[in-house]
Nucleic acid binder design. Sequence first.
DNA 1: GTCTATAGGGTGATAGAC
DNA 2: GTCTATCACCCTATAGAC
Lengths: 189, 189
Amino acid sequence: MIIDMSAKVFARGGYHATGITELCVANDLGKGALYHYIGSKEELLAAIHDRVMDEVMFGANRVAERGGTPSQQLAMLGDELLDVIHLYPDHVWVFLHEFPALTGERAAQFRERRRMYERRVEAVLQAGVDTGEFRELDPRLTTMAWLGMHNYTYLWLKSGGRLSARDVAKPFAEIFMRGIATPTSKDDE
Amino acid sequence: MIIDMSAKVFARGGYHATGITELCVANDLGKGALYHYIGSKEELLAAIHDRVMDEVMFGANRVAERGGTPSQQLAMLGDELLDVIHLYPDHVWVFLHEFPALTGERAAQFRERRRMYERRVEAVLQAGVDTGEFRELDPRLTTMAWLGMHNYTYLWLKSGGRLSARDVAKPFAEIFMRGIATPTSKDDE
DNA sequence: GTCTATAGGGTGATAGAC
DNA sequence: GTCTATCACCCTATAGAC
């Protein structure tokens, strides 16, 4: 797949620093052939972004379908998110580094999808506060804390590496759950 | 300052996408004059990185000098780190996005300084485990969780914004401290 | 579908006058 | 210290043959 191969090249060298010629070599195609498939360099970048957002939203939908308590939902969201980062490290790297290179309609669409996912997390946190599982907290701020903790793993979490997605997701969930649990119900979970 | 003005331009448009001509316009200088000060585009990028790392390490040193328990140390590290992100949002953006553009000796030096800071955080966590304040945990993994939570604020924490650095640091510390505290001593702090 | 040639406009950096 | 002119190269994208 051109998208996957190009994601690797962009992740290594950066979007703007990577020339069309490099993409041709990596994909073993001439310029004419490559442009036949990608349309433009930015369309290729957008396709990489979509690949990530598709996977992330599929995961979030699976979690919602499975149901469960807010604690369980949040833990599952963590599992799914780290699965994506672990499985598609190059795509995620490009996603988190090169999104400012998207322009116009593509940039707007990207922001909206990203925001949509953040709202899913926020909603789970709010639900936990409502049921009393989580203590009173700022849902937006807590969402950003949770997202940062998980997304930042893109720097070191790799498919070939020592740790699986679950190896990271479990201790992360433990920190976060204890961190936001209501004080009286802290010793179980 | 050329460094500060250029950090803003890089943060907005990306390092590789920003031309020397743009930098000249932003700094109100001709090419000759600009090159007289910066040496090369990459030297300018390195100077922005150093500005961030200097501030971060100064903060870490202040924390070490002040002393206190591992919990207090970690909370202060969070305050200091978010202060830097809040005060230098453009520099930090460039720092977190464009570090792969550094090459050779500059790249090696950058990685080492960044690693040095991470070890500071890791040491505080390990100290907390040793004193029994923190439960048994993987110090490296927990460091990355803590760093991610804090660093990710570069996306939305701005100097002009609604929230101060402290407004974010306090709830973040509360989540993280409760998250890693030993179960028996959870209700105080 | 894939090739080569080329358009048209940048790029970072330097030289040498003032 | 700052200017302008210029170097040598690279960029994305397209045209038109095969």
